[in-house]
Structures are given as structure tokens and as C-alpha cells.
Amino acid sequence: MAPHQALLPPPIPRGFPLEWSLGTFATPASQFMTSDFSSGAAPASLDWNDPAILALRRDMLKFAHLQLRDEGAAEDAVQEALIAAMRHRDGFAGRSALKTWVFAILRNKIIDHLRKHAREIPASDLVHRSDDDGPDIEHLFEQDGHWTTQDKPHTWADPESALSQKQFWAVFDACVNHLPANTARVFMMREFLDLGTEEICEELAISSANCWVILHRARTALRRCLENNWFGGAPKPC
């Protein structure tokens, strides 16, 4: 059994009611994000309409939807992750890392879902190039393999400051969404779900070399998209 599976409760049917009471926090609901989960407060009911919970669900849904591209499956994964998080909150001892922890559980739910459904993606879709498979990066390079003049990567001014700007993340989302679906899936398994390439290859039945090439294409396309749309490069069609 993979380590992450030990954390998870049994699957919960779709349409599971939001109002279902799971447990409570000794602190007011509005303090949810800073509650001390290790205090051993008596369980009662969790307010699913609390703004902090709603905001957390919204962010989790956005994350799950990007990976799964299926609203129902994303809802299920988020719901199951939240319930697992609440069940195991006694074992959670750091308040500042709460979101990191909840997202780690969500990631595991998404990985479980992808494992179950990975074989539904024909491997040929990943390996053989077609019009909608993999951003074409060949045109960025001259015949001799050097950058074309207009596609040379520029220096980015203070990229770290972008991470604290909401608009940057909107551009980032758009750039990820712009990747062809199959390329995006491999990229997200590697970067967002933090799976190793060996595991990705096994799940998708592709070779390591193919996996590395797909990841190279994805990163190159993302880099270019961010440069063109955020870091001040002249706007160019993707």
C-alpha cells in the first residue's frame, strides 16, 4: 500500500451533502484558518458555509479541476479530501501548514483518481505527435538548433515578486490551460502532483525518454507564455 493511502477514508458517494456534520472547532468558525487543530477540542459540527471553508473549497476545486478536467470528479476529490482532513485533524500539529496539509491530502485523492483512470488515455495520444498533442517548440529554434532571434529567452526582472500578485496567477492558470490536454496531464502529474517520471511512465505506459520530451515541451511552452504575457516580452501568438 502506498503511504498516502493510509490517510484516506473509504470513498464517499457523489452528491454527498455539504451540510453533513463532521466535527467542530473550539474556536469561532471565522478563526478556522488559525485554529489549533492539536488542542483536542470536542467534536460537534463543522460549518460548511463558513467563509474560510468556502474559500478553501474554492481553491481546492480550482486545483482539482485543472488536474482532472471533470467537474464531478473534482467535486468528489475535494469533498473526500476535506472529510479526510477533518477526520485526521487530531494528528495535525501545525496551524500555519494547514493548507499545505489539506492540499497534500487532495493531491493524494487526485493521484488515486488518475491511477484508476490512467489507462483511459491511449498511450498513442501521448507518444505520437498530432495537431493537438504537445506544443510544437521546433519553430523556436533555427535549423542548427540555436534560438531564433525573436524567441530568445529574455532576462526576467524580479520574478519572485510576481508570485505575490493575483494577476500573475491568472496568467499562469491561462498558460497551463493553454497547453494541449495530454501534455498538461503529464506536466501536472510531475509538477503539481509531484510524481516521479518513473511512476508517470508506468501509469501512462510511455517510455522515460518520451516523458522527458513531453515535459520539456510543456515547460518550454509555459516559459514562453509567461514571458509573452507577464514578463514584458512583446506579445506573440502562442
Binding site: 530568445k152 508570485l163 509538477e191 509555459l222 516559459r223
Partner: peptide, 29 residues
């Protein structure tokens, strides 16, 4: 090659960005 040096630094930044995303540490979070 300055272009590829830029590219390599930007791969670091991309990794940093995706790490923030997967940990739920975005500003609107």
C-alpha cells in the same frame, strides 16, 4: 549563451511556482 542561462533560471522559477501552487500557497488563498 545568455539565452539558455535565462532559460535555466526560468526553469527554477517555474518549479518554484508549481510548488507554491501544489501547496495551496497562492496569494488569493
Amino acid at each position: 549563451c545568455d539565452s539558455c542561462a535565462n532559460f535555466r533560471r526560468q526553469m527554477d522559477f517555474l518549479a518554484q511556482t508549481t510548488r507554491r501552487f501544489r501547496e495551496g500557497r497562492r496569494p488569493d488563498d
